[in-house]
């Protein structure tokens, strides 16, 4: 097993950040199951995609920097990529759902959705 040469407090910080991040992500997934309407559910995964992701990336970077394997914060790449793409996917998905609810109104959609803006 590796990591034996790390100071104890670094190990505690890394483990704590990883658990907290994973817990937040789990909470987001739990919200995905628990919330009752689609538009509510879209909010849930953002927990894991923002703070949960940051915490796990931070844990990874602290571990590799403290063990002297690598100092460059390469996790930044993953973080930046997720920060830019998550809103794009969620917005697209919400708009797709809105489009479907508007076109097949009264079918299965229980939540009422606002009408489309007028196009002149």
């Amino acid at each position: 097993m590796n990591g034996a040469e790390l100071p104890v407090w670094v190990a505690v910080v890394v483990a704590g950040l990883a658990i907290a991040g994973a817990g937040l992500s789990l909470l987001g997934a739990f919200g995905l199951v628990r919330l009752s309407s689609f538009y509510d559910r879209v909010h849930a995964p953002t927990l894991g995609a923002t703070l949960g992701m940051t915490m796990i990336l931070l844990a990874s970077w602290i571990y590799f920097a403290a063990s002297g394997e690598r100092l460059l914060p390469r996790e930044l790449l993953v973080g930046l990529f997720l920060t830019v793409t998550t809103p794009v996917t969620l917005i697209l998905l919400a708009r797709a759902a809105l489009f479907r609810d508007r076109t097949e109104s009264g079918a299965a959609g229980k939540t009422e959705v606002p009408p489309a803006p007028l196009v002149e």
């Binding site: 590796n2 034996a4 790390l6 190990a11 704590g16």
Partner: peptide
Amino acid sequence: SAQILDIGL
């Protein structure tokens, strides 16, 4: 610290 990391992760 190896145990802490192992259990935590």
